[in-house]
Each structure stands twice: as C-alpha cells, then as structure tokens.
Design a protein around this nucleic acid. Sequence first.
DNA 1: CGCGGCAGTGGAATCCGTTCCACTGGATGC
DNA 2: GCATCCAGTGGAACGGATTCCACTGCCGCG
Lengths: 348, 348
Amino acid sequence: MAKTNTHPTLSQVARKAGVGTTTVSRVINGGDRVSPKTLAHVRRVIETLGYMPNQAARTLKGHRTKTIGLVIPSIADPFFSSCAEAAQAVARANDSLLIVTVTANDPRNELDNLNVLIRHRVDGLIIVPADSHSHALRDLLNRVAIPVVAIDRPVGNSMIASVVADNLKGAMTATQHLIDHGYKRIVCLTGESTLYTIRERMTGYRKAIEAAHLTPIFDTSVTDYRSAEYAIKALLDGPNPPDAIFALKNSTTIYAFEALQKFNIAMPQAIALLGFDDFELASTVRPSISVIQQPVEEIGRRAAEILFEQLFDEHRTGSPASSKQARQIKLKTCLIQRSSCGCTPPIN
Amino acid sequence: MAKTNTHPTLSQVARKAGVGTTTVSRVINGGDRVSPKTLAHVRRVIETLGYMPNQAARTLKGHRTKTIGLVIPSIADPFFSSCAEAAQAVARANDSLLIVTVTANDPRNELDNLNVLIRHRVDGLIIVPADSHSHALRDLLNRVAIPVVAIDRPVGNSMIASVVADNLKGAMTATQHLIDHGYKRIVCLTGESTLYTIRERMTGYRKAIEAAHLTPIFDTSVTDYRSAEYAIKALLDGPNPPDAIFALKNSTTIYAFEALQKFNIAMPQAIALLGFDDFELASTVRPSISVIQQPVEEIGRRAAEILFEQLFDEHRTGSPASSKQARQIKLKTCLIQRSSCGCTPPIN
DNA sequence: CGCGGCAGTGGAATCCGTTCCACTGGATGC
DNA sequence: GCATCCAGTGGAACGGATTCCACTGCCGCG
C-alpha cells in the first residue's frame, strides 16, 4: 500500500522543495541557470518523491515529442524486424522513442495506424507503404506536415523520400550470374506478384533474360509447400524442364528448396537454385543456398538517419524543409555465392 | 505550401462550425448527446479541416493513455518478435497502442526504457526482465502503480504476474525422450548459462538424467560456429563420446547442427540432436531437427490478456487490483518429433 | 556613488481536450 | 396550468510542464 497510485507533479516537487516551478523545470532539463545548491536540493526532492515528468504535458507545450513512428507489415518478419531494430538504434541515439505498428499489408490498418501515430504527434514517420498507389495514403501524408521516409517500397508519384534495395539490378545480377554459368532455362518463381519489390525483381529478371536472348519463364503459383511441389513437378515433367530456379523471395525459396529435397533432385547438378533475400539458415542447409542479399540493417538505419536529418533541417530553418528534391535512395544488393547454384562457394 | 504545418485544434473546429467546444468533443467521442444535424455538420467541418485530436492533451486530462509498453531484449529475435506481434494484436483489440523498446539484455537500457515508458504514462507494462534479481528494477516497478506482467522470465521475489514456458518440464520431457530411445550419454549444450530460462532447462535435464541414474554432462562453451566445432570434436575424441546432444537454445542447436554436418556425422545414427525452441527451418534442413517447442504466440497473447484484465479490474474497483495473488502462469511446451533424434517422424 | 548587467529565481500565461455545471426550450405528467 | 424532465448545448475550470517576463541582489566599471 506504499504505492501512491498517482504520480507526483512538478508543482508538488516545487512546493516540497520550497522553490518555484520554473526552477524545478530547469533542474529536470539539465540544470542550467540554477545555483549548485538549489540544484542538488531539488534533485534530492525529486529522488525521494520518485518524480517523473509527464510526457503528455511536455508534448502539449513544446512542439517536439521526441517520438517517431514506424509502420511495417509485420514485426515477426525478419526483414522488417531487422529494419526496425536498426531504426530503433538510430532513434535512441537521437534521444527519441520509436513506435512500431503493424499493418499486415492491409491499407485500412495502415491508415488506422497512421492516424494513431499522428494523434500522438510523432515528429516523423518511416513507413512501408502497403499500397504504393493509394490516394488515401498520399493525401494523408501530404496533409500532415511531418517528414516521412518510405522504406522497401517507394510511395508512387510523391515527393516522399525513400530508401529501398535496388531490386531490379539485384535480380539482373542474379539472373546474369545463372546465365554466365551456362544455365539456359531459368524459371522465375514469383510467389505473389502484386508487391512493388517483386515486380521490380521480375523486371530485372526479364531484362537479363532478354538481353541474353533467352526465354523468360514465370511461375506465379508458388505460395506454400504444397503449391511448390505441384509447380516443380509440373515444370520437370513438362516439355522443356528448367535447369535453374530463381526464387524472388524468401518463403518461395524455402518452399522450392523443400520440394526439390523431397523429390531428391540434386542441387545444383540437376537444378540450380538462387534466392532473393538472405536468411540465417541459407548457409546451414545442405546444399547451402545462394542468394541475393539486401542490406537490411542499412535500409532501416539510413531511413532513420534521413528522417532525423529532415527533422534537424526543419528545426533549423523553421519550415517543412523540402528545398532539395526528396531523396530516392537505392542501396546495392550483394550476391552471396553458396553451393546451390553451380559455382564453387568460397573456401570457408 | 498548401501544408498547414500546424494541426488545427478542437476550438478552431468549434469556431468554424459555430458550436461550442463541448459539442465538438462529443462528436469526436462518438456523438452521444448531439443532435443528428449538428453531428453531421461538425463531422463535415472536421473532415475539411483534417482535424486530428491531440493525444497529449487528451492524456493530460483523462487518466488512461490507451498505451502499453513492451520491453524486450531484441526485436530481431524471432521468439520475442512473435511475442510482440501477438501482444500487438491483443493491444489493438483493446484499442491500445503497443510501444516496443529493446534492451539487448542490458539492465541499464532496461531502466532507461522503463523510465521513458513511464514518462509516457503507459497504462501497463509487459517486460522480459534482463536481470531477474535486480533491485533497481523491483523498486521501480513497485513505485509505479501500474500493472506489470513479466514474460519468458519471472521477476524474482515479487508480486508481479508472469507468463513463461515451463522450461524445466520441457527439458525433462526432452531428456526423458532421449533416454526412452536408448541414449545413454547425453550431453547438454547450454550456451551462455546465466539466463533464467537456460538454468531452468539445465535443472530439468539434470533431474531426468539423475532419475535414470545416468551421468549429466554439461558443456557451456558453445557460443558460435567455431566453438561448436571445437567442442564437438573434443567430445567425440574424448574417452566416452556422447550418443546424443540436447541443445538448450536455438542458436546452440544450429551451431551444433552445422558442426555435425561439417564432420559428416550422421544424425541420428551416430549422434542424436534435440533442440530447445523451434525455428522455421528446423523442419526444412536435412535431417529435420526435433525440438521442444514453446508456445511463443501464446506467451505474448496471454501476457497481454492478463495485463488488460488487470487494467479492467483496476478500472472497476478504482484501486491497483492486487487482491488475488499475482498469477504465475507456466505454459506447456511440446515435443516436436522430427528426424534428428532416432524416432521416426510422423508421416507428413 | 550610480548604473548596467548578470546570475538566480518565481509568477502566470499557455498548450488543447475533457468534463462539470448551468442553461434553454419543448415535451410529459399530474 | 404548473412543475418536471430531458435532449441539446456552451462556458469555463482543469491537468502538468514550459517559457516569457519581471524581479532581486550583487558585482564591476566608470
């Protein structure tokens, strides 16, 4: 029952310490313009009372909330959680709190989440737009006058800064790599193909294939283990069985890998496998899987850094800094050669 | 330049709509006690102005912030991110915002994070205590009069509710399973052994081993790939090579698996492997790895549910509900039989 | 000696929703 | 017909920290 249940307030501290509220406020904000004696005394009172400033009251007055919002499809997805962790670190370094909300790629959730964050008056936003072309999203982001950075996918037709992996080039590199190693019938497993990233990767694949005068082969049917088995069986039994598989995302890669295992199809002897996006166990499974690796942490980190830069500029110039064209950053991907695609892995 | 840069306020809405602030407040809170005509009119004005209530001002008056805090070691760890996602869902269902902060298991970060959350006047807390016996932590949690639920690890010597997996029984089941299948020299790979969960698992292992009159063999040295190779080589070259390995956590399981692969040691013929904590690819690698599975989502979900129950009780009774003894919930783990430990996996 | 200036301090207005209370006018009850 | 009640509404105090401005001493300089 020692619990007070109600937080002490600044003026209670002031009264108990026999000083004015101004002084207490100064003490909790660094103690400038306060005599050392008063400082120590007030600090002691704060300690004994267990006083903690009320953020809501602060926010109400000053205009920075030291809070930024991150809107992602899922926390459980390693890609996004790594981004989140990197952004967190930057936020902390800037003395800010990161609030993460999840959309499950549903534009309605996305709008809800954004509304909540805006109510909380976040200083800025990092967002993975569920639908790159949503009007509602663009309108909302245009209306709130805070810095926004998109990651993983840009927001179409807008002045919003973005940090994404160069999916197109990555896919080209991957495809070219397979071509260079003599593969001729390279099938591209897209999984769901509505997302921006997947479409970029599809384009990259097509470009490389066409440049080599080969035939692009797309399969959009693989969305789980079962469909992977089915699709791979169909492809192998077909008239022109593929000699390589390029899977455009993690889950698809794993489904394909699993199916190939099940059919006892040797990788890379019978079929090569190359995935887009790295995952921890890609190097542990046998054969280890070659992949295009995205700079996950860098995406989160850069996005947060750009956000805080914008915040800083805004603070300096007073107005919603938009002088320089919104930056569209594309980060290089990296081909990780392992054993699933016909090239000797580097000695390990 | 269409941007306003400053959010419209409730009284601006009121003025523009030609009504009182009270009425606008009622409209944004559901529209009770407002005539349909006024309601529609005010709604229209809100729409055109793009008005969004300022959460800070709300918080300042009413006492609920509709915000709960989650303090975990890492977002990138699948175990915790799954917990977080489950807790998120419950929070959303209760119309609350979940704020996730990460400690990297550092007690200092933990205290910092808690302070930030308390400043923000979260209604309640879910926490993975970095150090179960920290005085500072207990004191802080005792002082703030808000509901707290610990997950994964209980807070020692306190009245704080907790939701954890039954690590001890899980480890006993695992060990017993190995014993039942004829393994006699079962080595236990602990990895870092300071954490509560690991210690519980160690105890479970020891109990089962001793009940079967076997000799417990602990190895605490495995913390990365290299050390796993070293340790396993040493064990196999030793006088009494083990016939089974029980790894107490994910990373250790993977390191051990990798090392066994490298040495071309057949699982489970030469050595059985059983891990604690499931991971997505445990079923994909060859051989697939048997594990003790924790009810990850359930931990997050139950914790959040208990928190909201406490919040509800508190709301009903007015005071920090602590009538019934703080609940310590232990959730059952589950043995997932796959092929790495000498038992035929269920037909799949 | 007198005045500017500065360190140290406090009073009070301010930020923006919420909510208690008071008020109006029309409908209902006896 | 008069008292009651209620739906609908607005005024204004309130919550807690920040911050502008004003005030008091005291030092130093001319």
